[in-house]
C-alpha cells in the first residue's frame, strides 16, 4: 500500500512539475520574441546589422532617436494617435447607445440588428478600404485622418456594440427602475446611476477600439498617402528602410499595446464571454 501511495504521489509531483515547466515555456514563447525586438531597438545600428550579435544589448537610445527624427516617422506616430483617438470616440459614441438599446429593450428588429452586427465577423473588414478609397475621393475625405478613422470605426463598432451590451446587461435594470421611482427621468437615471457603474468598462472598450485602430495596417496603407499612420508608414518602408529603423518602429507599435492590454486585462474575458452568444 505504502509503495503504491508513494508512486501516486510521485506521479502527482511529476505532473505538477511538467505543468509548471509548460507554463514557463509558454510564457517564454510569448515574451522572448518581444524582448528580442526591444533588445534590437536598444542596440546601436551597427550591432543590429552585425553577425554574430552580442548577447546583451548596449542599451542606448540612438535607434529611437533616429526613428523619431527620420523623415515622416514622427508624423506617422502623430497621425496614428489622431486616428486611434477619433476611432475610439466614434466607436463608443455610436456603439454604446446601440449596446444599451440591446440590453434594455425588447423591440421588433432587435434580432435582425444583432445578426447584422455578428455578420461583420464573417467579413474581412480591412477590404472595406477598397471601395472607401473611391468614395472618399468623391466626398473629399481621401487621405484624411477622419476618413481612415471611419473605416477603423467600422472595424471597432461591432466590438463596441457587443462589449457595451454586456456591460449594460451586467447592471440590474432594477437599479435604473429604482432611480425612476426616486424622481429621475431616463436621462438622469442613466447619468446618476448607470454611467458611474459602467465607466471603467466603457473606458476598457474605448481602449480596445483604440488598439484596433492603432494596429490596423491594410486599410491604413490603402487609404492614406501623405497622412500615413505608423503601421502604414512601416509597411511602406519595409523594402527600403534600414533594419534598425524597422525594429525601432516595431517597438513603438508594440509598447502602447502592452500597456493597453494591461489596462483592459480585467475586461477581456467578460467581453469575450458575452461575445460568444
Amino acid at each position: 500500500m505504502s509503495t503504491a501511495g508513494g508512486r501516486v504521489a510521485g506521479n502527482d509531483r511529476l505532473a505538477h512539475w511538467v505543468f509548471i515547466a509548460t507554463t514557463v515555456v509558454l510564457c517564454g514563447w510569448v515574451l522572448v520574441p518581444i524582448w528580442l525586438l526591444i533588445s534590437n531597438t536598444l542596440s546601436t545600428a551597427s550591432e543590429v546589422n552585425s553577425f554574430p550579435k552580442p548577447v546583451v544589448p548596449s542599451l542606448n537610445t540612438e535607434n529611437i532617436q533616429f526613428f523619431l527624427t527620420f523623415h515622416g516617422a514622427g508624423n506617422a506616430l502623430w497621425n496614428s494617435i489622431q486616428v486611434a483617438f477619433a476611432t475610439m470616440i466614434m466607436a463608443i459614441s455610436v456603439g454604446a447607445p446601440a449596446g444599451y438599446a440591446l440590453s434594455r429593450f425588447d423591440f421588433r428588429g432587435k434580432n435582425a440588428f444583432r445578426v447584422l452586427v455578428l455578420m461583420t465577423r464573417a467579413f474581412p473588414l480591412p477590404l472595406l478600404a477598397l471601395p472607401m478609397a473611391i468614395l472618399f475621393i468623391r466626398v473629399g475625405l481621401d487621405d484624411t485622418v477622419i476618413g481612415l478613422a471611419i473605416v477603423h470605426t467600422t472595424l471597432a463598432l461591432p466590438f463596441a456594440v457587443l462589449i457595451t451590451f454586456s456591460l449594460f446587461s451586467g447592471i440590474p435594470i432594477e437599479l435604473e427602475e429604482a432611480a425612476w421611482t426616486l424622481g429621475c427621468n431616463r436621462l438622469q437615471a442613466f447619468r446618476k446611476v448607470i454611467l458611474p457603474l459602467v465607466l471603467p468598462g466603457l473606458a476598457a472598450s474605448a481602449i480596445f477600439a483604440f488598439v484596433i485602430s492603432w494596429n490596423e495596417v491594410f486599410a491604413a496603407a490603402v487609404l492614406t498617402i501623405e497622412h500615413r499612420t505608423l503601421p502604414a508608414f512601416l509597411l511602406q518602408s519595409l523594402d527600403d528602410a534600414p533594419l534598425h529603423l524597422k525594429f525601432a518602429g516595431g517597438t513603438m507599435l508594440v509598447l502602447p499595446a502592452l500597456i493597453f492590454i494591461f489596462l483592459v486585462r480585467k475586461y477581456l474575458f467578460a467581453m469575450w464571454g458575452i461575445a460568444n452568444r
Binding site: P172, E174, L175, E177, A178, T181, L182
Partner: peptide, 10 residues
C-alpha cells in the same frame, strides 16, 4: 416609492 426584490441599492 418602491422596494425591489433584489433591493436595488446603488
Amino acid at each position: 416609492a418602491m422596494v425591489f426584490q433584489n433591493y436595488a441599492v446603488f
